[in-house]
Structure formats: structure tokens, C-alpha cells
Design a protein around this nucleic acid. Sequence first.
DNA 1: GTCTATATAGAGATAGAC
DNA 2: GTCTATCTCTATATAGAC
Lengths: 190, 190
Amino acid sequence: MNAPHFSTKERILGAAETLFAQHGFAGASLRQVTAAANVNLAAVNYHFGSKDNLIEEVFRRRLDELNVRRLAALKNALAADEPKLDHEGGHAFMRVLARAFAEHDERLRKFLSDNYGHVLREFATAFAGFLPHMDKEELYWRLDFITGALTHSMADFGPMRRRSQVSEESHRERAAAHLIRFAAAGLRTA
Amino acid sequence: MNAPHFSTKERILGAAETLFAQHGFAGASLRQVTAAANVNLAAVNYHFGSKDNLIEEVFRRRLDELNVRRLAALKNALAADEPKLDHEGGHAFMRVLARAFAEHDERLRKFLSDNYGHVLREFATAFAGFLPHMDKEELYWRLDFITGALTHSMADFGPMRRRSQVSEESHRERAAAHLIRFAAAGLRTA
DNA sequence: GTCTATATAGAGATAGAC
DNA sequence: GTCTATCTCTATATAGAC
């Protein structure tokens, strides 16, 4: 069995995701990124053109696939009624995503909204279908609260961190179970 | 009536709060801060010693007073049962606070936890008293979700932004009313 | 496609005059 | 307490050899 070999581009993306999660987009330098990826500094500009483009690629790499899965899961849920939280991409990416919320950078917001806004809107429409008697504004507020709770907990912002005995996988599943109970009750209340 | 005159130190703190909220701690430079505050660049080091110390002072200025109010509100609520969301410090500070969550910087985390962690713990204890039959881990998860929802919505991360017709004051009150309904239901559910 | 070397700009911090 | 000037370091980006 050969170990999989990662291209320079992939190594840069992986290191960038980790370091942006840890230090933020402004806080992590291309020098740190290329050092962690074990590639030359100039490789970033060759493969991505600029730091801003690299940031966008970090999102694109995960979100393209993730949103396909999300929409499929939504379609299934519309038939089966069995919610399943999807957190593909791993821990580092959830933290990068949470950072994207914190950065009120207009360029990044626009990029995410233009490319992935339709997924959010499909989910909102589906929830409106399930809760036809709920005031629209009330519903949107509640979905926004759930987004906040999800982002906060999945990015390990709060004190409910994983204990070292528990695997990351089962920690996530436990967190998801708690969140679903909490969110469902908050969403349905009169 | 004389317009109030702000000291150099206060002008720096105000400008820093706004710019840190907008661009993050790493993203906002001391040069931007001092330019916005209309003071000399060297004034930051004279008054605060370093950028890191300035960041801590931005928090200390608001949190010292805010937490006194929070604890007083908790004491009242323990008697009266009338929750009131406190968001003293204004919009910019809520965004700075949300950024502090996003920054996984250990130094900043420790500073906030050392100086203000006891407030959080008092609230958790009070909630445990109100919900004596709830499993502790379940309760802590739910309080963490509420923290996420609160931070997210008060920092205007999501799409539920204030419309220009609505005043900031009444937008906040509306958001708080929605959040209290949502959080109360999520917290109490079996 | 990857390297070295460097251009250019901006950062935080400080020394010392006033 | 505030200024100018500057030190030193680091940043992003690019030019050009291999």
C-alpha cells in the first residue's frame, strides 16, 4: 500500500485551513502556511495568485461537496423525517467557517452568499413548509439562532470541549444529539 | 453646554473597539486605530505599553461594569423571575466580544476566563437551581447553545440584520424577545 | 512547477526632543 | 503627555534562474 501523496496545492490548502482556523485569516501569514505545508513561499502565488484567492479556495474545496450532501440529506429528510447533522470537512473547517461569520469582510461574505446562499434558502423554505402556521419573521429568527448555536458548538468556542478520552467522532455525535433536542424544542414552541 | 471632551486614552479605546470589531485584532493595525482616534501612533505604547494590553483594556472597560449589572440582574431575577437581556456597551462591543470567541488565542481566553469566568459560573449555578431535575451535562450543553445563539445574533452575524427604518434600540429588543422565547423552550424541554 | 532573491510596503515598538 | 524620526521585523507579491 502506497501512502497517498498530496500535491503542493493540496498541502497548501490543508495547512491554510488549519492555520486560518487557529489564527484567523489576517493572523496567519503565508509564510506560516507554506512552512507548515513544507512548500516554498512562492508556491502560494503560483497556484492561487493571492492570499485572498487562497482563502476562497479553502472554502470552495469543502463547501462544494458538503452542500451537495446537505441538499441530498434535505431531500431525504423531506420524505423520511430523520434529521442528520452533517459536519464533513472536520474540526478545522468548522472553525474556519465560524471565523467567516466573525469576519465581517464584505468580499468574503459576498463570495459565500453568491456561491452557497441558495442552500440556506432551500432549508429555510423546507422549514417553512413544515411549520406553515408560524410567522415568517419568527421562523427566520429561530433559524438564525440555530445557526449561531451550531456554529458556536461545532467550532468548540464554548466550554463544552471534547474530553481527551472521548473520540472526536463520538463527541460530535453527542453534541449533535443535544443540539437537535434543543433546537427542535425552540423551533416548535408557540 | 460643553461637549464632553475625551482623553487620548479614551479616544484610543473607542477607535480600537470599532476597528477590532470590523477587522479583528490582527486585522486592525495600531496605525489605523491611532488615525481614527486622531492621536499620534506613539500614544498607544505610551498609554498601554503594547497592542496586546490595548486589546485587554478594550474588554476590561466594558466588562467590569457590564458584569456588575449582570450579577445584579441575576440577583433580581432570582427573586422576581423577569429576565432582561443586558447588552450594555453597544453594537461594536458585542462584535468584539464575538470575535474573542472566534479567536482561539490562549492568552485572550485566559484573560477573559480569569477575570470574568465567575459570572458565567454564577449564572450556570442559578439555572441549575431552577431546573433541579435536569442532567448537568444536558444543561451545560444548552447554556452553551444559548451563548452561541446570543453571540451570533447580537453581533449581527446572520441575515437577520436591522432594517434602516428600525432603530438599533428596538431592533435589539425585538431580537431579545425572539431569543428569550426560543431559548426558554429549548432549555425547558425534556 | 519549483526555487532563490528581492522589491515594496506595512507592521509594532522605541528613543529622544519638546 | 505628545511629537518626529527611525529601528527592526515581517508581510505579500513578483522576477527570473533552473
